[in-house]
Design a protein around this nucleic acid. Structure first.
Lengths: 116, 116
DNA sequence: CAGCATCCCCACTGATACTG
DNA sequence: CAGTATCAGTGGGGATGCTG
């Protein structure tokens, strides 16, 4: 099932957010990504980026400098995730709205009462 | 982050597929859902449906008959997931296509060579 | 038919410390 | 700066058997 395939690739706790940040910013260093995701650990960020790289969504570029610099950006395939991430984000916003709008709940319940 | 919120709700191995089947069919009995997802165990189907119910995406209707009959359908909120599930499915199809098209890989790599 | 109960595993996630 | 290494915990997910 295609839905399952996609979820296997961008699922999990962090990948969606990483992709969102990269779509937003285009190209980010490891530390910049980390700064944009204060709750993720270095370890998890590394693991998730490696996984995204394996699946061909992200490119990792190492600049042989001191101090080391590594930049991440989306591949062409990775960029095709834009509409997916967008819809995930939009629905997240809608959901938060819904939860904080108790006034309309009664009307909603009446709708739900429809029979199959 | 809204992206993370959505993934917490419809993430995991099965929820996306369940939602897809319900969007497609409108209303399904437990056994009908199970038949459409041969790999899921009864236990997991039950657990995932309960979770979707808790989050207000699915309505569970029990018909007091013998043998028992339980039907599942989306709430109004659940139906708002249509564009999300759609985009997940479309990208899944695109991804499968990409993997089975080795001819275009060279061109793709050249694209990836662009600098940040 | 549509489940619940039970047992179990390991993959995901995390905290912490260390390093080229 | 951008990682590895190590250890540990939790819970998602699964197999199987039983039942109103």
């Amino acid at each position: 099932c295609p839905v399952e395939i996609t979820q296997e690739i961008i699922g999990g706790k962090w990948k969606g957010v990483i992709l969102y940040k990269l779509l937003e910013s285009g190209c980010l260093r490891f530390s910049e990504l980390k700064r944009r995701m204060p709750r993720i650990t270095q370890r998890m960020l590394t693991l998730q980026l490696r996984s995204l790289e394996e699946d061909g969504l992200v490119i990792r570029t190492i600049y042989p400098e001191v101090p080391p610099r590594v930049e991440y950006r989306l591949t062409v395939l990775g960029k095709t995730l834009q509409p997916v991430i967008d819809s995930l984000m939009k629905w997240g916003l809608l959901y938060e709205e819904t939860k904080s709008a108790p006034v309309s709940k009664k009307a909603a319940v009446q709708h739900e009462a429809e029979v199959c």
